[in-house]
Nucleic acid binder design. Structure first.
Length: 343
DNA sequence: GACTCGTGGCT
DNA sequence: TAGCCAAGAGT
């Protein structure tokens, strides 16, 4: 235990200095860290890959480069800019947090983990990561990478999520007082490139001399995870109402699935087959033979596509079909729109 | 602790 | 292919 405390940070930081990734939100050695960019990147990276985040981060920071501009942004613009990234509460909370920084912190991002933790969208991980990376505070940063590295390093065999307290305690023992931000990023770089979920590259790992999981064999079996429940199948109908080259869009409620997002009208998503009961208007609806499928985190969805044209005006937001790709639709609706337009 | 909440990439 | 997984947070 104490052997790891002294050897792991040194070995890991040496490895990081030689192999650290260059990322748009990451300050190079000697550069000044921008807390706004660190925070934004950490939120975007929640459950989201570096490849998916990179172009979004660049576009976002070009449009809203700081807390003040984001706090003053139009909500619909923000949600449209987030479309396709998923977990849309993140976008809603980004605006809430930016407004809170401007209104309650004089525009200055708080620098302690405890203060950061009070802002919307900053949970245990993100508050610790921002405190460490942006402000150099010593904080125990535990994400899925760190969980995996630590579970192997200490050969923790308790299944997740029950193992979380033990993993955090172990991570605490190897977190250094200095360079805590680099240490956190090094752990994540190691987890993404060396200590991977499958086929870890132990022969290249700077922590192999300290790794109990390697010493005991089969480190790839760690961490142990509880099995997940099967996803149910749900069904529904998407309504494509067209008038003079424009299609009717709605705005979904702020809470719940795809909350606050612009969308095509849809009925409830249940175990019932597609039907016209929830149509947004009286019209000569035709059900297409095509079906659109989409997987969410906790259920799979198969949608019928109901289409109709109207002449009379209907209340709602009408969007030109030709520019529908700029409407900021979540992926499931973008899929449906493409299927309909392909016909 | 158990759910909800997206998406795309990988094997 | 079908499942697994990723820089998690909120309730």
């Amino acid at each position: 235990m104490n052997a790891k405390r002294s050897s792991v940070p040194v070995a890991l930081l040496d490895w990081y200095d030689a192999h650290r990734r260059v990322l748009p939100w990451r300050a190079r050695p000697g550069e000044t860290v921008d807390p706004y960019r660190v925070w934004l990147s950490e939120v975007m990276l929640q459950q989201t890959t570096v490849a998916a985040v990179t172009p979004r981060f660049l576009a976002w920071t070009a449009r809203w480069p700081d807390f003040a501009s984001l706090a003053a942004a139009d909500d619909a613009d923000v949600m449209a800019a987030w479309a396709g990234l998923g977990y849309y509460a993140r976008a809603r909370n980004l605006v809430k947090a930016a407004k809170a920084v401007v209104a309650e912190h004089d525009g200055v991002f708080p620098r302690t983990e405890a203060e950061l933790r009070t802002l919307p969208g900053l949970g245990a991980y993100t508050a610790a990561a921002v405190a460490a990376i942006a402000f150099g505070e010593r904080a125990v940063v535990v994400d899925a990478n760190v969980e995996r590295v630590v579970a192997r390093l200490f050969a923790i065999t308790t299944p997740l999520p029950a193992a979380r307290p033990a993993i955090r305690a172990a991570a605490d023992t190897i977190t250094p007082d200095m360079r805590a931000g680099d240490f956190a990023q090094a752990m994540m770089d190691l987890g993404s490139s060396i200590c991977t979920t499958r086929n870890p590259k132990c022969l290249l790992c700077p922590l192999r001399p300290d790794c109990d999981g390697f010493a005991q064999g089969e480190p790839e079996r760690l961490p142990v995870k509880a099995k997940k429940a099967a996803k149910p199948q749900r069904h529904g109908t998407i309504f494509w109402l067209e008038r003079d080259g424009q299609v009717l869009l709605v705005r979904r409620p702020d809470t719940g699935l795809l909350g606050g997002m612009r969308a095509l009208p849809t009925g409830p998503w249940t175990d019932q087959p597609p039907g016209f009961e929830a149509a947004p208007a009286q019209a000569d609806w035709q059900m297409l033979d095509d079906r659109v499928t989409h997987g969410f985190t906790h259920f799979d969805l198969e949608l019928g596509l109901a289409v109709a044209r109207v002449e009379a005006h209907q209340p709602g937001e009408w969007w030109p079909v030709e520019t529908l790709d700029t409407a900021g639709l979540p992926t499931v609706f973008a899929k449906a729109a493409q299927a309909i337009r392909a016909r």
